[in-house]
Design a protein around this nucleic acid. Structure first.
Length: 645
RNA sequence: GCCCAUGUGGCUCAGUGGUAGAGCACACCCUUGGUAAGGGUGAGGUCGAGAGUUCGAUUCUCUCCAUGGGCACCA
């Protein structure tokens, strides 16, 4: 008597006498499908459930089969168990904790009396592959909480015991493969042989339950894929990412230098400074258009400023403070408090708003030593920072203008792939709900009117206001947070900022913190990784390299050089007594956009032969035309070469 | 800050309990060569810093600094 119905994606309905498992549904359709089943998705949820899960009447089921993207989650989950099994077979004294699936793989945290060496990782991978061949069946058992606690206690798996005790359930599930088992919610594969390709990657220290007060565990990162080919592709991608690492690129391209005497504080060389300054002047040119004024504010303030702003209470450990002449002075970690002082310097009318001030001030923040990273996490940096003080009713227009500005910049830089996140009011917050309502609504309305897609992160806003975060997705599909727009009701209050309204009484402005690139340091790092160092001509430290074939062509090169220089083009004449191939190689490695070769032909008819970074050469180009084209390409900050149009 | 690893000429990296080597870069010489490395010679290093063990330490141990992989942090 069939009284349980399961609906499949095609709309067909399967009937069962008792609640079937995902696998049983698959079996009722076909044995081939059953064999390939790795899990299920129910009622349109994205979560993948275990194939052994019983389905209640009326469930809509989508079966997850091998080879699918969804199945990766299951495969990786089981791979984590496989890794734990391998580790415990190799070293029975190592205790297990947890092993979740992450974006590109999985990890397992072990409580081990010793640290795993690279050789150990090789052993583990070998053991895993050995165990895979045994193709053990994975079975699920449901234990009472007491039995689970007792069993794991006897095994001295105290971290597991802690997890079980913290679970609110009376029963827990345990997955078994051969003689090894682990407490787990699933989902898992049917047989270990369904894991097709694994790779143990690296180790790391990690705190138990992510809390630095807890003991530190040994984490092993690994990944698994549905085929050897997919794994190889992933490993290849890792290699590519390594080549694009901005720390390597910025060094190889001679842009950035680090010295142990200035940890976390990069030097920008002559070349790096060109990129930095070009970006800055580009933004300055936009500021004119978008109604910003630039200001310069002090580097060091009496610490009282940060007591007033509230940073002393929440952010003191990141502020460099020193005691001089009986006073505490702090190096500014952000521009906003200084800008509030400047706001208060003159009496403001509603007519003065919106007041938009930009500041390229250098900031310093003390960071914990382990936090530093190349150009993306530094102790000193310069934001493309600006603050907008406006009336509540101007908020939406300002937000729209900012998003338009940001989009213009990102398009110009070839960064069209970005995502917008709207973070709304957190539990602990300041300001009235009315103000939060208005500002959240303004943010949403602005995005909608601009037809921009966005994701809401409920409760993720700052305590002082809601915000937009812009995540740029680079050429390797990696997300980076660069731009931001934050509403702030706190600082205007802390500094008692006012303007005189039309009604002749005092009102408090809203303050907007905003940045498009974030910081030049971080941006240059991200942009180098995005472009793999191949910068558009207007940003390239050297735009043209002139290469003479023999010394007889020197004079013509010098003539070209001075013409280019007089038109503001950054040109380098490689006059060395070297073969052309050698000069080309170096210019290519330095990613110089225009490699100009000059020999008899060129001297004779006042032309140039141009090689682009893609290896293509364009011969017999009139020198005048070439120069004019470059000048206009740079002036317009074009993304691509005029040859590629 | 925590766990682990690493630190050798400007760069990339070998190597050793008896005070160091290559390639590139650099200097000089030869080579005048049409699109990713022509040849020769030479100079250049207290082997990250300090302490310890040792007859002797770049090598072993410890501490510190920096960097890297993560964790934690990033009002």
């Amino acid at each position: 008597m069939a009284n349980i119905s399961i609906t499949l994606p095609d709309g067909s309905i399967k009937q069962f006498d008792t609640e079937p498992t995902v696998l049983q549904v698959a079996e009722s359709i076909g044995s081939r499908l059953a064999k390939d089943t790795l899990g299920g998705q129910i009622n349109d949820a994205s979560e993948v459930i275990d194939l052994r899960t019983k389905l209640p009447d009326g469930t809509r089921l989508k079966i997850v089969t091998k080879g699918s993207t969804e199945s990766l989650e299951v495969v990786r989950h089981s791979s984590a168990h496989l890794m734990a099994q391998a580790v415990q077979q190799l070293w029975p004294e190592v205790k297990v904790t947890i092993g979740p699936v992450i974006d590109d793989g999985f990890f397992y945290d072990f409580d081990s009396p010793f640290a795993f060496t690279p050789e150990d990782l090789i052993k583990i991978e070998k053991k895993m592959n050995f165990l895979l061949k045994k193709n053990e069946v994975v079975s699920k058992e449901v234990w009472s909480k007491e039995k689970a606690i007792q069993t794991f206690s006897e095994m001295d798996e105290n971290f597991k015991v802690e997890i079980i005790k913290d679970l609110g359930e009376d029963e827990v599930s345990v997955y078994r493969q051969g003689d090894w088992f682990d407490l787990c919610r699933g989902p898992h594969v049917q047989k270990m042989g369904q894991i097709k390709a694994i790779k143990v990657l690296h180790t790391a220290g990690a705190y138990w339950r992510g809390d630095e007060k807890n003991p530190q565990l040994q984490r092993i990162y690994a990944t698994a894929f549905n085929s050897k080919q997919e794994l190889d592709e992933y490993l290849h991608l890792l290699e590519e990412a390594k080549k694009r690492d901005h720390r390597k690129l910025s060094k190889d391209l001679g842009m950035v230098y680090h010295h142990p005497f200035a940890p976390g504080a990069p030097f920008f060389t002559e070349k790096g400074t060109i990129v930095y300054n070009e970006l800055q002047s580009y933004l300055k040119s936009c500021y004119l258009k978008y109604g910003y004024s630039e200001v310069i504010t002090p580097q060091i303030f009496d610490h009282q400023l940060y007591e007033k702003s509230g940073h002393a209470a929440n952010y003191a450990e990141n502020i460099y403070t020193t005691h001089v002449h009986e006073r505490n002075f702090s190096v500014k970690p952000m521009n906003c408090p200084g800008h509030c002082l400047l706001y208060g310097a003159t009496k403001k009318s509603y007519r003065d708003l919106p007041w938009r001030i930009a500041d390229f001030g250098r900031l310093h923040r003390k960071e914990k030593s382990g936090a530093l990273h190349g150009l993306t996490r530094v102790t000193t940096f310069c934001q493309d920072d600006a603050h907008i003080f406006c009336r509540m009713d101007q908020l939406m227009t300002e937000i729209k203008s900012f998003m338009t500005f940001l989009n213009e910049v990102y398009q110009q830089l070839g960064m069209s792939n970005y995502k917008i996140y709207l973070s709304t009011r957190p539990e602990n917050r300041m300001g009235s709900d009315d103000v939060w309502d208005q500002s959240e609504a303004a943010l949403e309305k602005a995005l909608k009117e601009l037809n921009l897609e966005y994701t809401v992160n409920p409760g993720d806003g700052a305590f002082y206001g809601p915000k937009l975060d812009i995540m740029f997705v680079d050429a390797l599909k990696r997300p980076w947070q660069l731009g931001t727009l934050q509403c702030d009701f706190n600082m205007p209050e802390a500094f008692q900022l006012k303007y005189v309204g039309e009604d002749n009484s005092a009102h408090q402005p809203v303050m907007l913190h905003r940045a498009i690139l974030g910081s030049f340091e971080r941006f240059i790092g991200v942009y180098l990784e995005h472009t793999a160092g191949r910068l558009p001509c207007w940003l390239a430290p050297v735009q043209v390299v002139l290469m003479n074939i023999t010394s007889q062509h020197s004079d013509y090169c010098k003539e070209l050089e001075s013409q280019l220089l007089s038109r503001g083009v950054r040109v380098h004449f490689d006059s060395r007594n070297e073969k052309l191939g050698f000069k080309v190689r170096e210019a290519q490695l330095q990613q110089i956009p225009y490699m100009v070769t000059v020999g008899d032909k060129e001297v004779e008819n006042k032309s140039v032969t141009v090689r682009l970074l893609n290896g293509k050469t364009h011969g017999g180009y009139a020198a005048d035309e070439f120069i004019n084209n470059i000048v206009s390409e740079v002036k317009n900050r074009e993304l691509n070469s005029f040859f590629e149009k």
